[in-house]
Structure formats: structure tokens, C-alpha cells
Design a protein around this nucleic acid. Structure first.
Length: 739
RNA sequence: GCGCGGUUAGCUCAGUUGGUAGAGCGUCCCCUUGACGUGGGGAAGGCCAGGGGUUCGAAUCCCUUAUCGCGCACCA
């Protein structure tokens, strides 16, 4: 490696300017090829038998631009990656983006609506998809450049997209495998229907909003013996039973009896049944069972083998009744039914209650539970796992997807940081139902199933022959995300990458997608590969504004990480995001905090100026004797290195960052540099040389320690520093101190 | 309803296995003009939410109360 021992003091005369520096440095890194572990091995930076360290980047949605949460994610991951690369590990960080089906589609629909006043149906499937792809591409390009601005040292040669060719193959292969194992099934079941988005959504895409509602208590008819309560009288047209608790003596005489009534002009048949799920104390203690329009009631119907008449359609309109009801919106129909109840003298009580109403996360539409023919992943069905490396699950044994999710975490094969999220995780699994994976949207992985008459074909490629029609639905975006750790490594191809880098080491992501994503990756990996997708899950919190509010467009309180990089430098933004931020805890960020770390970058710059202007070149070429006092300063430095290494290994990045900050500013600059001034003035030649040598050494060693946190300024200073034998040209591949 | 967190200096937060509390910012005083004013030195400020317990010793472990936040479920 070439050594350039000319201190570039002219550069150093100016204050540190991150804006001028950062883009240039990133380009140099990228051109060096060292983001790619193959190049590191090829060039002798990494041993060919070095142990791998892998992170697959959680792919940002191609819905626009990066926000502070992404910046935090990228920083945390880059710290780990740079640290491991400097340690000599075979370090791989794969970047990528997510097509984010519903989110991207609704974004583009919104734009087209606004600009052209057209819907996706006006454009047609093919034309609409073209528009989405154009949008996604532009969005991808800005995201990719923003990831670079943050200084992320990821391997762009392996970049992936959840909807590209390789990932499509993985998705289809997985679908077919699960279908063949009977874990994916098509069924007519009650689902969460979003009338606004015209699609099904998964249970965890529901957001509950508290609203005031009226609870009506009434009887179906004058002769009906039991009163029931509901907030949705219009659904009662779909009732088939009244359920009471088996121990409820008030109603035991009626259990088993059946009644025919005409309810608001519609004849209905009601059976009185006893079911454990009914609460005696709630309302009248009797529940009108509407199987087609309530998830709980659907399950009651399962237990009692009841019919499930549908009375509401996909547009939230009534499908039965006379002219008063037919075709009316549910909200209108509700008033009609209530008026009828009053008129007939059946309404006994009308009270105001607070209720949690289910809305769709993406569109805000009020969820209408409906029975529909959809695709599901069965989480409770046992299947034979061919080859299992999961503790407590033997190869060839019968196991369910739920068991896989539980045992990998319970057995410690996947460690969650902070640990208390494991409890939340288990709690979620206990309540997990079958996962509805089909969506009635256009953008995404189309379900790889084809129909011809009564025939059904499932496969990676379309079937040959005429007359086959592909299923119109697409897959839940989390289906493809769930394969991310191994689809990015070219699964189902058995590549070298896959062999070397999977399972990955760390998944670093926000706690809010523990269920959406983390759990499903564990599910898919356990199922398809019999192993875990990663050994450690590091969950970061939400980045909030200075007042602790979530950053949002409507509030206008967002801080754009790119603006931050522009104004203060990416290094400053990185430090501000990391320091004082513990895993799983929300953090606040403000310009003041970021500014503080810009000052720190400048401080480091000026330390360098002082050191370089204080030392003779002789202390670099010929190592002078270090006196006892200065030796103790080096020992202090070693201690810092040991502590920081331990902190990073144990995922305490906030502490590692703070320690080196404290040391550089308040020990190295405030004490050691200050005391050096006196030595340079009045010390003996030996004292001067000893001190000069350790100033040089301490500075270099601090640059190494700081590099994962503030890669740009440290790399820039490194380039300006005279080198000695063994120093590497780029700081990013300099060796981390061995412990 | 079930579960999980938080409650520490004016503000934002640390405090790794229990050993009489720390940082950043802010405030006040002082210093300094060839590394840096994006600087240096110093100071004030906390019965670590309340109560109880374990211990030689508790911010740290256990119980309990209050309060804030979050997740899940349900509200028929």
C-alpha cells in the first residue's frame, strides 16, 4: 500500500466542511469495492476463511423518500457492518427496497386521481401497473442515493427488490411448496374487508379508533322472548341465532328453541343456542349471532353449524330487503331499521357508548367483516418438517408454523433485543389466526395459481396450453418480505452466497414491525429451511421530534435526514441519532442536538490540526522511546478500546459512541492536548518526542474507534494523516484493535 | 380486560451483574485571541414518582399504589 507522508496542511487550514467532503469520500469507498466482501478477500483485506457477518437491510418502501427512522436504521446497521469489516470478518450488508404493494398502489392512485381525475379502473390493469412501476423506479432511485448520503457501506452489487425477477421466483416457489403441503389454502371465510380500498387486509393492518356509538337494545319481534343489544341494527337482518351463556339461568329454558320472525320486512329464522363465549354480564346477556358480518359470530357459527347469510356487499351496501333497505348504505340502513324498531315498539333502550371501530391502516376505511373466497396460510396445521435445525423440533417430525415461531425464540436461537419484546411476541402468537394473504389490488406478486374450468394449476411458471386464467389477486406484501433474508441470497438457487451468509447475523428494525415482519420471517425460514433467518433481532424505537411527537407530514414537524446531512453533515446526524438512544425506546431529535455533533466533528478536525502542527516527522518514521507518563496515557487508550469493543459486541452502541466522544473531547483535547502545550514549550527533546509520538498514535486510534460512528470525517482525516508501515490507505478497512 | 414499558438535575436521557447518582443542552461566574468562540475552567441544581420489603448496603431485586405511554384482545 502506498504511503503518503505529506501532511496536507492547506486542506486543514479551513474549518471542517462536511458538505464538500462527504460525497467525495463515499465515491472513493464505492470505487474501492470494499463494500463487497468478495473484493475484500480478493485484495487481502479479509481472510478467505474469515467468519461471515451478515445483515440484510430492511427494505424501505418505494413510496417516496427516506425519513429519520430509516436514517436511524441505516446508522445502526452501518456501525455494526463497519465494525465487523474492520475486525476482519467476511462482512456483507445487502441493500434493497420493498414494493410495498398497498402503500405504493394507493399513493399512485392518489396522484393519478389528483392530476388526471382518473381511477385505476379508468386506466386498466396494464396501464396502471406501468404507472406504478415508473413511480416505484423514481422512488427507488432517490432512496438509493439517500442511502449513500447516510454513508451506508452496503454492497450495491447485490442490491435486491422485493418484486424483481429473483424475488418473484422465490415467492412463487414458496407459494407452491406451501400449497403442496396444504399450508396455503383457498377458503370462503370471513375476512377484514376495506370497502374504501376494495381489498382484504390482515388482522394486524387494522387500526382501532375510539368513537361514540349508540347501543340499541330490542327484540326481533313482539313474540320473541329474548332482548339483544347491538350497535349495528342493520346487520341483524343477517342473524341466524341468539347465543346465551350455558350457565345463564335466565335463558336456559329457551335454548334449543327456534323462531321465525319478520324483521324490518325480511323473514329470518332464529335458533337459541348456548355458547361459552357469551358474557352474561354484557348487555342483556344474549347475543344476536350474525355469522357473515362478525368475526366472533362466524366462529360461533362454526361451532354450532349455523347458516351464514350475507346481507352486506363489498361496497358496504345492503343486499337484501325491500325498497327501504336494498342497495342502501349500511349507515342509511341502520337509521331505517331503528325507525322501524321504534315504530313497532320493539326498541327498549338506546344508550351512548364508546366503541373501538376497526379501520384500515392504509386507507382509513371502516372495516366491514365479510365472507369471501380468499387465500390463507394455515398457522395451526401440522406438517412434516424434513430437515430441522431448530431446537426442540426434530427432522421428520410433525410441527405447526406456530410452533416454529414459538420454539426458535423460546429456545434462544433468535434473541430479541430488548428482551422484553419476546413476551409481546409470544402473546401475539397465542392470538394468531390464519393469515389472509390475498389482496384485491393490482400492484404486487400475482398469486401463482391458474384456473381453467374446474382445473387449478399452481406453479412457478404459467401452465402451457390455452384457456388458463391467472388468479386476479396479488399477495400481501409481507409474504415477499418474509422471505427477505434468503430471497436476497438467491434462494431457491443453492448459491455460494446462500451457503456462506445464511442464517444472517442481525436483523435491525423498528419494534412496530415485530409482528408484521420479524415473526413472519421466522415462520417462513423455519418452514422452508428448518432454521432461523437471523440470530439476533435488534429493535429500535421511533424517532420523534423535540416535543416527543411523531413526525408526520400533516404536522409538518418532520426532519429530513438529507437536509440534516446537507446542513450539519451525515456524521453529525448519525451521532445525534445514536447517542442516548437505547434499543426499543423512542427517542427525540432536534437541530440543537445535531448541531452539537457537528461541533464535535469540527473539534476532531482541529485536534488533528494541532497534532499535525505539533509533531516532527521523525516520530513517525523512527519510533521514539515513550516515557512512563505517556505510557499510562496509552494504557488509558487501550482501556477505552476494550470497553468500546465490549459495548458494541453487546449492542450498546449509544454507550460506545458516548465513550469515544467523551474521551476525544474531554480527555484527549481538554487534558492531553492542553498538557502537551507546556511540554512542547519547555520539555526536553525526549519528552517532546515521546509526547509527539503518542499524540499521533492516540489520534489514529481514536479515528479507528470513531469510524463506524462518524465514517466521513474520520476517513477524511485519515487521508490527511501521514501514514506509517502497515497502515491501510482507507480507514474503512483499517483493523479494529484486537482484544 | 390481559400484557409490556416509562416515572432519575430546568429540558432530553444514560446508569451493563445492588456498593452513598452521570452526560448533553440550558442557567450563572470566570478565562482565553495561533488547534477549535463550533473554545477553555468552574459553579449551582436531584430524599432517583409514593409506600412497604429483602440486604451490611437498593435508582438498581421483590411487593404495592399512583401516573404516563405502548401492544393485544373485546365491546355483541
Amino acid at each position: 500500500m502506498e504511503l503518503d507522508n505529506t501532511p496536507k496542511l492547506t486542506t486543514l487550514l479551513k474549518p471542517y466542511d462536511p458538505k464538500e467532503t462527504e460525497a467525495r469520500i463515499y465515491k472513493a469507498w464505492e470505487e474501492s469495492g470494499f463494500f463487497n466482501p468478495d473484493v475484500c478477500i480478493e485484495k487481502g483485506v479479509t481472510a478467505s476463511d474469515a467468519k461471515p457477518f451478515t445483515i440484510i437491510m430492511p427494505p424501505p418502501n418505494v413510496t417516496g423518500v427516506l425519513h429519520m427512522g430509516h436514517a436511524m436504521m441505516l446508522t445502526l446497521e452501518d456501525i455494526m457492518i463497519r465494525y465487523h469489516r474492520m475486525r476482519g470478518d467476511r462482512t456483507l450488508w445487502i441493500p434493497g427496497t420493498d414494493h410495498a404493494a398497498i402503500a405504493t398502489q394507493s399513493k399512485v392512485e392518489g396522484i393519478i386521481k389528483k392530476e388526471e381525475d382518473k381511477s385505476r379502473h379508468d386506466l386498466g390493469r396494464e396501464e396502471f401497473l406501468k404507472r406504478v412501476e415508473t413511480f416505484a423506479q423514481a422512488s427507488h432511485d432517490s432512496i438509493a442515493s439517500q442511502i449513500r448520503v447516510m454513508g451506508s457501506s452496503c454492497d450495491w452489487s447485490r442490491e435486491a427488490f422485493t418484486l424483481d425477477e429473483t424475488r418473484t421466483k422465490a415467492v412463487r416457489t414458496m407459494f407452491k411448496k406451501m400449497y403442496n403441503d396444504g399450508l396455503i389454502y383457498r377458503g370462503h371465510r370471513i375476512v377484514n374487508w376495506d370497502p374504501k380500498g376494495q381489498t382484504t387486509i390482515a388482522d394486524d393492518e387494522i387500526v382501532y379508533e375510539e368513537r361514540k356509538a349508540k347501543l340499541y337494545t330490542f327484540k326481533y319481534s313482539k313474540d320473541f322472548p329474548i332482548s339483544i343489544s347491538t350497535t349495528r341494527p342493520e346487520t341483524k337482518i343477517g342473524d341466524v341465532a341468539v347465543a346465551v351463556h350455558p350457565d345463564d339461568e335466565r335463558y336456559s329454558a329457551f335454548v334449543g328453541k327456534e323462531y321465525d320472525v319478520v324483521f324490518c320486512g325480511v323473514p329470518i329464522h332464529i335458533k337459541v343456542i348456548a355458547d361459552q363465549s357469551v358474557e352474561k354480564e354484557f348487555g342483556t346477556g344474549a347475543l344476536g349471532v350474525t355469522p357473515a358480518h362478525s368475526i366472533i359470530d362466524w366462529e360461533i357459527a362454526d361451532r354450532h353449524n349455523l347458516p351464514r347469510p350475507q346481507v352486506i356487499n363489498e361496497y358496504a351496501k345492503m343486499t337484501v330487503g325491500d325498497e327501504r333497505l336494498l342497495g342502501k348504505k349500511t349507515t342509511v340502513a341502520r337509521d331505517v331499521v331503528v325507525a322501524w324498531l321504534k315504530q313497532e315498539g320493539l326498541l327498549e333502550k338506546e344508550e351512548e357508548v364508546n366503541q373501538n371501530i376497526s379501520t384500515a391502516e392504509r386507507t382509513g376505511g371502516i372495516i366491514e367483516p365479510l365472507p369471501k373466497l380468499q387465500w390463507f396460510v394455515d398457522v395451526n396445521k401440522p406438517f412434516t418438517i424434513a430437515d430441522s435445525q431448530i431446537k426442540g423440533i426434530e427432522s421428520g417430525s410433525q410441527v405447526t408454523l406456530k410452533e416454529i415461531m414459538t420454539k426458535t425464540v423460546a429456545g434462544g436461537q433468535v434473541a430479541i433485543i430488548p428482551d422484553h419484546f419476546s413476551k409481546t411476541y409470544f402473546h401475539w402468537i397465542e392470538n394468531l389466526r390464519d393469515w389472509c394473504i390475498s389482496r384485491q389490488i393490482w400492484y404486487g406478486h400475482r398469486i401463482p395459481v391458474w384456473y381453467k374450468g374446474d382445473e387449478t394449476y399452481t406453479g412457478v411458471e404459467a401452465p402451457t396450453g390455452n384457456g388458463w386464467v391467472q388468479d386476479a389477486d396479488t399477495l400481501d406484501t409481507w409474504f415477499s418480505s418474509a422471505l427477505w433474508t434468503f430471497s436476497t441470497l438467491s434462494w431457491p438457487e443453492k448459491t455460494k452466497d446462500f451457503e456462506i451468509y445464511h442464517p444472517t447475523d442481525v436483523l435491525e428494525t423498528g419494534y412496530e414491525i415485530l409482528f408484521f415482519w420479524v415473526a413472519r420471517m421466522i415462520l417462513m425460514t423455519g418452514y422452508a429451511l428448518g432454521t432461523v433467518p437471523f440470530h439476533t433481532v435488534y429493535l429500535h424505537g421511533t424517532v420523534r421530534d423535540a416535543q416527543g411527537r411523531k413526525m408526520s407530514k400533516s404536522l409538518g414537524n418532520g426532519i429530513d435526514p438529507i437536509d440534516v446531512a446537507d446542513k450539519f453533515g451525515a456524521d453529525a446526524g448519525r451521532m445525534a441519532l445514536i447517542i442516548g438512544n437505547t434499543p426499543g425506546t423512542d427517542s427525540r431529535i432536534s437541530e440543537d442536538k445535531i448541531k452539537g455533533y457537528k461541533n464535535f466533528a469540527n473539534k476532531l478536525w482541529n485536534i488533528t490540526r494541532f497534532v499535525l502542527s505539533s509533531i516532527d516527522e521523525s516520530v513517525i518514521d523512527t519510533k521514539p522511546t515513550i516515557n512512563e507518563n505517556d505510557k499510562s496515557l496509552l494504557a488509558e487508550m487501550s482501556l477505552l478500546e476494550t470497553e468500546m469493543t465490549k459495548d458494541i459486541e453487546e449492542y450498546r452502541f449509544y454507550m460506545a459512541g458516548e465513550k469515544v466522544y467523551q474521551y476525544v473531547w474531554h480527555r484527549f483535547a481538554d487534558v492531553i492536548l492542553e498538557s502537551s502545550k507546556e511540554i512542547m514549550k519547555n520539555g526536553t527533546t525526549e519528552e517532546k518526542h515521546s509526547r509527539q509520538r503518542i499524540l499521533y498514535e492516540i489520534l489514529k486510534r481514536n479515528l479507528v474507534l470513531l469510524h463506524p460512528f462518524m465514517p466521513f470525517v474520520t476517513e477524511e482525516i485519515w487521508a490527511l494523516l501521514p501514514k506509517e508501515q502497515g497502515d491501510r490507505a482507507l480507514l474503512m478497512i483499517e483493523r479494529w484493535p484486537t482484544q
